[in-house]
């Protein structure tokens, strides 16, 4: 049965969604608006990683069939995405005198500006990192799982970053301040937390993770200027499923949505056998994610984590 393989693929795709949804959720809770530019921030990170990879390329030994230079490039991509996000925050969002809906609309404009600049520099056609594709790991093929070393690298890196973020949020001063600001900004300010600085850190962490996620998405698929916008709704679905503002909810939501997205072939096979269910093929994988999102919004707007803020 190919179910195991689909599950494994789902785990890989989830890792990317989780990286993206953490940032979206952090910004939602601390800057208090739905950031539609988050997907394009991922694309910024991916293309910055591409540029960096062109310079530092195959530096160093290979880890999991990827040169160390690739991981350095991803770090550069994350840093560039963080820098771009902070600059956008200072130049665009902070001086605005509008409510959170106004910020939401503005973020769409920001998303278009990011994408237009990427298109002007790199063209609209998809590009690739140019790392040779790997064959599926031989030891796992008998189990029916066709998964490459690169995909293991994606899952492992995402796991490291998520654990790192958990430690940061729970055990460091910055993490405690971030959680306090997300919970109640006025109270945090009265308690002496410089919330403006915390907002900066939110953008740095959120956009940084999104940039790294974008780089992995580029490795997993291809890089294209629309890659971020195309995945944005799936990321929103994950954040809403997990409960807006909850980082741990976003992680769980990302995992679920990613797996469901990749399981679509199996789900549609089952659905065909049932009466009264339309034949939904794998082409509708994103559609199913949106419908889950709308259903969650209706039934339980606080998400599966129950509105527990980070």
């Amino acid at each position: 049965m190919a179910l195991l393989e689909l599950l494994a693929n789902g785990l890989v795709f989830s890792s990317i969604i989780v990286l993206a949804s953490i940032g979206l959720s952090l910004v939602y809770s601390i800057a208090d608006f739905a950031n539609f530019a988050h997907g394009d921030t991922m694309a910024v990170g991916a293309y910055a990683a591409l540029l960096a990879f062109g310079v530092i390329g195959g530096v160093g030994p290979t880890v999991l069939a990827l040169p160390v230079g690739f991981f350095l490039s991803l770090a550069v991509g994350g840093a560039v995405a963080a820098l771009v996000a902070v600059i956008t925050h200072v130049l665009v969002y902070e001086p605005l005198e509008v409510d959170s809906i106004g910020l939401l609309i503005t973020s769409i404009g920001v998303a278009f500006v990011y994408r237009a600049i990427i298109q002007l520099r790199f063209g609209s056609n998809p590009v690739e990192f140019g790392i040779p594709l790997q064959r599926p790991i031989d030891a796992l093929v008998p189990l029916g799982i066709r998964i490459t070393v690169h995909e293991i690298a994606i899952v492992a890196s995402a796991a490291i970053l998520v654990v790192g973020l958990h430690l940061l949020l729970q055990y460091t001063d910055l993490g405690r301040k971030m959680r306090a600001t997300a919970d109640n900004p006025s109270l945090a300010r009265v308690a002496g937390i410089r919330t403006r600085r915390i907002e900066w850190w939110t953008w740095i962490i959120g956009a940084g993770l999104a940039g790294v996620g974008g780089g992995f998405l580029g490795l997993y698929n291809q890089l294209s200027p629309r890659m971020g916008f195309d995945i944005l709704l799936v990321v929103f679905a994950a954040v809403i499923l997990g409960g807006i503002g909850s980082v741990y909810g976003a992680m769980a939501g990302g995992l679920l949505i990613g797996v469901i997205n990749q399981l679509m072939p199996a789900i549609s096979n089952v659905a065909v056998a049932l009466p009264l269910v339309p034949n939904v093929g794998p082409a509708y994988a994103d559609t199913v994610a949106f419908l889950i999102m709308v259903a969650v919004l209706l039934v339980r707007p606080s998400g599966i984590a129950g509105g527990e803020t980070t």
Binding site: V92, I105, G109, V110, V113, Q119, L120, S124
Partner: peptide, 20 residues
């Protein structure tokens, strides 16, 4: 050479500028 992207850029900047 790429007016499709330029149009996107103008649209994006216009949204930001109007809101600002």
């Amino acid at each position: 050479s790429d007016f499709g992207s330029t149009r996107l850029l103008i649209v994006g900047l216009l949204i930001v500028l109007v809101m600002r």
